[in-house]
Nucleic acid binder design. Structure first.
Lengths: 334, 334
DNA sequence: AACGAATATGTAACCGGTTACAGATAAAAG
DNA sequence: CTTTTATCTGTAACCGGTTACATATTCGTT
């Protein structure tokens, strides 16, 4: 592999000049530039990214720290992040944290040593102070996904969970549901809390409202299944279920199927997230779709903006959600 | 951030000695070692990975190039790769190639410039020559996933597609199916070809065998749906479907559901891969499960072996598959 | 004609490690 | 008590770029 000095020597110029040509900065005559480019071509010279990183402290690499890429919500986000990064000449490092603080921290240590340019952070457990510490210690650009907005220097990408939950409930009401339950996710997740709050605020005024219409789930398939069973045992007359995410909604759907309860005729189900899996079942799942790809893409775009110096202040990007009406909810004939 | 020279100065030794302590190579007295470690602790010194990379040409980073992380088969593989890498102190760069040669090549260019230590390559399009070229040009360790074995220096991780296909067909036969069709994946995929071959070899001896029992799919949900429709139109008496992968099997299941055909009573369906999605539907999908996680983990382990110098020769790792019997196939009562 | 500003290029230090080589000391061998 | 060998440590070159600073040349001004 040719080095910048090889190029300089053969072109009869200094390394500084070659560097200027490569980076298109500083003054270089058209003539010398041509000469240098010829030699670069000739030697198939490619600047060494590591040396560049060492000298310039920028490696063209960002990290995406997420709980678990196996969770069906994340692949699409990761894809978006990578697409945008790639388009801007960045490379993406993937880190699975399992939402464990120590893993997150250990990743961050390693990444800092590698002169990573920035981090997209999807975590439900890492406290605000940690984020702040992370950010302030060495002002590494950070963008958070799905976290409560803070007044820190870290931007946040999220979507309208509260409003989305109300869209879900309103939709169930509009098709004639008379008693709507909610399966909520782990309370330490902001998203779960917001969706629960949206549900509760809207239904508490109804005569049928009861606190035990809200049952806990774990944001996974099995949690949704169990929650649905429990729910039906306590309230056999429930005719609408709003689940805190799609996986739990699919779990509920599965339980219905097993118990021989027809969906949507007897019970309507609405999920939240809009992951691809919702199109796999029959009937397909009605859901409040987040712009998943867009969330990842926005996170990457904002991060890169930060890295490149513009947009230094924290900002919150709250994206719209959308009701995707499908087979698990249908207007009831009266 | 403290540098190795800061440590050396404060400890009253040379940088070489500090380096020896960090890397545990060369001779260092217990005394000096203690002294140096004290100072390292004191200054919170962390060796700079980029400088290390430049000097040592090893960055502790591997790349995983795959078609698309959104494809439900890959997240689990990626998770495995990352887990193993992480455990060995490596970091993983994720690259989505969409199976397009030019993207693959452009990634490889970038990655080489970044002194990546090795590559795990899951591609269906890149020719053998390309692999060879890639490998021979600068002997970068490479492990391939799901490719035909070659006599190159590149190891391959795969599973028993041919035998697995026969397991599927035998299972369908054993539960009493009389006419079994196959939905196959894109012929440019080795996996698709092998599964097709396994099916064909086994069924061609039956009187009901007919070439148009093999219909093409695209390895996606919609392809499976369309193929199933097409199939039933031509052969309404088919009572067993073996799909080349789970997504297509789920598509077929969906079609059955829409047409009001009961599964498994009227038609049994068996998929291939064993992705998590197969547990979402009701009935759950019977499938020939590959050890998906194990494949990723093996790939990572083999790659790291190669990187660390041992195991320089190409090898093929053919992993076992397993029949997971579930709701979409059931013994027929006669 | 004189002069400051803009343009063009080179020298050398620097980023922060690794490591070949050499010199010094201590232990083992003859 | 030498000589050989193993152990310990330091100096300085090197990895391959970037960039501050110095110097030289070319313009546009007055």
């Amino acid at each position: 592999m040719a080095t910048i000095r090889d190029v300089a020597k053969l072109a009869g110029v200094s390394v500084a000049t070659v560097s200027r040509v490569i980076n298109q900065n500083g003054y270089v005559t058209k003539d010398t530039e041509q000469k240098v480019r010829k030699v670069i071509e000739l030697l198939h010279y490619e600047p060494n990214a590591v040396a560049r990183g060492l000298a310039g402290k920028q490696t063209g690499t960002i990290a995406f720290i997420l709980p678990d890429i196996s969770n069906p919500f994340f692949p699409e986000v990761a894809r978006a992040v990578e697409d945008v990064a790639q388009a801007h000449g960045y490379t993406v490092i993937l880190c699975n944290s399992d939402d464990e603080g120590h893993k997150e921290r250990s990743y961050i240590e390693v990444l800092k040593k590698k002169y990573i340019d920035g981090i997209i952070f999807a975590s439900n457990t890492m406290g605000q102070e940690d984020m702040q510490k992370l950010y302030h210690i060495d002002d590494l650009p950070v963008v958070a996904l799905d976290r409560a907005p803070t007044n820190q220097t870290c931007s946040v990408i999220r979507s309208k969970n509260y409003a989305g939950a109300q869209m879900a409930v309103n939709h169930l009401l509009s098709i004639g549901c008379r008693k709507i339950a909610h399966i909520y996710g782990p309370p330490q997740f902001v998203t779960a809390r917001e969706r629960l709050a949206g549900y509760q605020e809207l239904v508490k005024k109804f005569p049928w409202y009861s606190p035990d219409l809200m049952v806990p789930g774990n944001f996974h398939l099995d949690g949704g299944m169990k929650a649905a069973e429990q729910l039906l045992r306590a309230h056999p007359d429930v005719d609408g279920i709003f689940a805190g995410n799609d996986l739990m909604a699919l779990g509920a759907l599965k339980t219905m199927s097993r118990l021989g309860i027809r969906v949507p005729e007897q019970i309507s189900i609405c999920g939240f997230d809009g992951i691809a899996l919702t199109a796999v079942t029959e009937p397909e799942l009605t859901t409040i779709a987040q712009p998943i790809y867009e969330m990842g893409a926005t996170a990457a775009r904002v991060l890169i903006e930060k890295i490149q110096g513009n947009d230094t202040n924290a900002q919150e990007y709250e994206l719209e959600v959308e009701l995707v009406e499908r087979g698990t909810t249908r207007k009831k004939v009266t």
